[in-house]
């Protein structure tokens, strides 16, 4: 079983924390409300574990966005929320309370924009810190059960969960990097380089 060493784990945590900080500041600026993003919890784990965990934590009703990225390593980056939490998040951001129990087109757009900022920040921090080039596609809105959303191309997942706090609401979100085996090796190598530089 592939595992992150303590050093690797700490390095990634710090790296993503920088990303989250950037994302929080971008979001706050955008909606003129203070948005806090917690220090992410990071775990390198199997797809099955994540599918199971997300299903449990979300009643297996998930909304979020998905972006394919490529470069030094490639895969899918996802920002996921329990479906009702995603509604809560965008409705707070949009200043609306809707009786609908699904996200409207506009809300999906809004979630995409928010997700894009967060994933940009995460990937950007990663790319900057590791001195690598990453390119990626525009985000897609996704919803469904955890098994559907995390398609089977990869068995290893870099899993982060983050708490959003805005307007006195706590909303837990999950950042999932579906990485190929090559990409994991790549990532570890890049971290090793980074650690040496320090």
């Amino acid at each position: 079983m592939l595992e992150l060493s303590e050093l690797e784990h700490d390095a990634l945590t710090e790296l993503f924390n920088i990303g989250m900080g950037l994302a929080a500041s971008s979001l706050s600026q955008m909606v003129h409300e203070e948005i806090k993003l917690s220090v992410p919890h990071i775990k390198l784990t199997t797809r099955d574990m994540v599918v199971k965990l997300l299903a449990e934590e979300t009643d297996n009703s998930i909304s979020g966005i998905k972006q394919y990225f490529s470069g030094s390593f490639n895969g899918d980056a996802l920002l996921l929320f329990p479906a009702h939490k995603s509604m809560e998040l965008v409705r707070v951001l949009m200043g609306e309370t809707l009786p609908l129990d699904a996200l409207t087109e506009f809300e999906q757009e809004a979630l995409s924009e928010v997700g894009n900022i967060i994933l940009n920040a995460c990937l950007g921090s990663l790319a900057n810190s590791l001195h690598i080039e990453i390119a990626y596609q525009l985000p897609l809105f996704v919803q469904g059960g955890s098994d559907d959303l995390l398609d089977g191309s990869s068995d290893i997942i870099l899993f982060l969960w983050v708490n959003f706090t805005l307007m006195e609401k706590d909303i837990k979100g999950y950042v999932v990097f579906l990485l190929g085996m090559d990409s994991i090796t790549q990532l570890q190598q890049q971290i090793a380089i980074l650690l040496r530089e320090i």
Binding site: F106, E109, S112, V114, L123, A135
Partner: peptide, 19 residues
């Protein structure tokens, strides 16, 4: 600001009317 950002990170960006 977003336009400025994209020159920096080259990541695609969305700006929506919703927000």
């Amino acid at each position: 600001k977003i336009v400025e950002d994209i020159y920096q990170d080259h990541f695609p960006k969305i700006v929506t009317q919703s927000l």
